[in-house]
Design a protein around this nucleic acid. Sequence first.
DNA 1: CAGTTGACACCGT
DNA 2: AACGGTGCCAACT
Length: 117
Amino acid sequence: MKNLPKNNDQEGFFSRVYEVTKTIPFGRVTTYGAIARCIGAPGAARMVGWALNNCHSLDEHIPAHRVINRNGILTGKHHFRHSELMQQLLESEGVKVDNDRVVDFKSKFWDPCYNLI
DNA sequence: CAGTTGACACCGT
DNA sequence: AACGGTGCCAACT
């Protein structure tokens, strides 16, 4: 296990990312920017990616495959154990992926902040 | 301690 | 409309 973020408390940026990510419903997807904005760090989408990169250290299973970029492209697929795993998981949930892009992404998109309200 | 990187997003040209 | 440059914040080297 690598260095976990110092802020393990509720205020922790990473913790929020994980919590929000785990909240993504089955068969839905969201974007890095949406998560970042939801946790009060607009523009920090890159940090969300970082958090997810570190999610492998967690015991909890983080549905990181449901987090994609604003274009609906599976930019992080290469970071999974198997490059095809991300697409495979999405397909399992009924989210069709074509050429590393989520089909009907706009329809599948789910705003975490919207749900929290 | 300072520079670079990173699973992105937005603005300007 | 497409492309390039810049900003975001934290971790890594």
